[in-house]
């Protein structure tokens, strides 16, 4: 399995100190740690959303720390997706328009195809009937799934997710996690930051970060229907061992 993300000696102020790790193609990995440990900063710096002070980040075969803003925008548009805790969508557009927004902006000629693709994605995440709804007319879980659809529009190689279930209730969080699992099964790599052990337990690997350093790693293997409880228990025990 070749690495889709290779991080080497990454530094960002006092928050990240010489962080190194790799994510293989098709993996789904969670980053956990207490508040202020640096997990979100790590995500922003490895996804090119923020600029690290030092170190290397090879994303999809490209060293991204030296890229210009426009080159990074190109990378974000075509090769990666991003899912936020706050489910940012533009109020002025309906759900489907929000989903196709980056794709249509990049390539107006294939607008019709993008709308068809968005509709198919929404159907696959069980929100197809919400296409014409306004942003404030759907639930949190539905909105987060719509955000996942948006991140999937350009067929990204990797998706970064920052606390994707952080603002959701338990039912909505389960719906969203199902969406992530399906996405991963279909071949998309996922790196997510979470503080929810149940969410982390569906991942193949968990990285534990504390005071800006990776302090441990738990390998859970590929998720399979029915083993959630065991994975959760294993995760909780490991986290206790790590001192959380």
């Amino acid at each position: 399995m070749s690495a889709i993300l290779k991080v080497n000696d990454l530094k960002k102020g006092d928050i990240l100190r010489n962080v190194s790790f790799e994510i293989g193609e098709g993996e789904i990995v969670a980053v956990m740690g207490p508040s202020g440990s640096g997990k979100s900063t790590l995500l922003y710096n490895v996804s090119g959303m923020d600029k690290p002070d030092d170190g290397e980040v090879m994303l999809c075969g490209t060293e991204i720390t030296g890229l210009s803003e426009d080159e990074k925008a190109e990378l974000r548009l075509n090769r990666m997706g991003f899912v936020f805790q706050q489910m940012n969508m533009l109020d002025n557009l309906n759900i489907i328009d929000n989903i196709v927004l980056p794709a249509v902006h990049a390539d107006r000629k294939h607008k019709r195809e993008y709308y068809a693709k968005a509709k198919a994605l929404m159907d696959s995440f069980h929100i197809g009937d919400l296409a014409e709804r306004k942003v404030n007319e759907v639930s949190g879980g539905q909105l987060q799934r719509a955000c996942i659809c948006r991140s999937m529009m350009m067929g990204p190689e990797i998706i970064f997710a920052d606390e994707p279930t952080g603002a959701l209730n338990q039912t909505a969080a389960s719906e969203v996690m199902e969406a992530f699992i399906r996405m991963n099964i279909e071949g998309t790599t996922v790196l997510m930051v979470t503080h929810d052990s149940r969410v982390a337990a569906i991942c193949e690997r968990i990285l534990y970060i504390l005071d800006g350093e990776i302090r441990g790693e738990l390998k859970l293997g590929k998720y399979a229907e029915g083993d959630s409880r065991v994975r959760e228990q294993k995760t909780v025990r490991w986290l206790e061992d790590m001192g959380w």
Partner: peptide, 8 residues
Amino acid sequence: MLKAVGIS
């Protein structure tokens, strides 16, 4: 958000 989803 627009920047994050890759809009230039």
